[in-house]
């Protein structure tokens, strides 16, 4: 969803002053984070706890983390990322509740005998005040996961085009969801 975006300039100050130690520290932090995540996933998927499989998992997660650790956490400083994840996990139950409500609405529409008179497909546009790529991607994915609305396009300037199935789903945008995401991703 982020393919139209320009790369953000958040890393610019550190690029201008490339001190070797800070870069090494950054690499170490991302390496350890992605290594831990990959190793936990390995243990869950393998389900064996003998020495051979654990060693294999250690080696392969170390290789993958060394190569692509900086792909997983690009624009965030490693220090604030735990707090970000905690806020994100606090946001998810509310999102699931919203998804459930909207699902019931779409179910009602689908099973209604006079469905063709109730629906009114349209594309609405609105401006969002979210700036970073992560925040916009989370917002667009949340809109798409909520039934009745699908994000069609997001421009670089933060203009969202959303396809709505009827008037009721469109009126709720951007609304609560955006303010919640602003709280999750403080600029």
């Amino acid at each position: 969803m982020g393919k139209d975006f320009q790369p953000t300039s958040r890393n610019a100050p550190s690029e201008e002053n490339p001190s070797k130690t800070s870069r090494a520290k950054r690499f170490g932090a991302t390496f350890i984070l992605s290594f831990v995540i990959l190793f936990v996933v390995w243990i869950i998927f393998s389900g064996r706890f003998d020495g051979f499989h654990i060693t294999l998992g250690l080696i392969s997660s170390a290789i993958v983390a060394a190569f692509s650790g900086d792909l997983m956490f690009t624009s965030h400083e490693p220090r604030g990322i735990f707090r970000l994840w905690i806020r994100l996990f606090a946001y998810i139950p509310w999102l699931i509740y919203q998804i459930f409500l909207a699902n019931l609405h779409v179910m009602y529409l689908v099973f209604h005998p006079k469905m063709m008179e109730l629906i009114n497909p349209q594309i609405i546009e609105f401006d969002s005040e979210l700036k970073s790529d992560y925040a916009r991607t989370t917002f667009a994915n949340s809109i798409t996961l909520t039934p009745g609305t699908i994000t069609v396009n997001v421009t670089v300037l933060g203009r969202f085009s959303v396809h709505c199935i009827d008037d009721k789903s469109g009126q709720a945008l951007p609304g609560d969801m955006e303010s919640k995401i602003v709280k999750v991703f403080p600029e």
Binding site: V106, V110, L145, G148
Partner: peptide, 22 residues
């Protein structure tokens, strides 16, 4: 049933993508 009943491709995505996920 939504995939069968809805009129066009954009609106068919609503039940196909979301109700199935739920």
């Amino acid at each position: 049933i939504g995939i069968l009943r809805l009129p066009d491709f954009y609106s068919r995505l609503h039940p196909a993508g979301k109700l199935d996920t739920a």
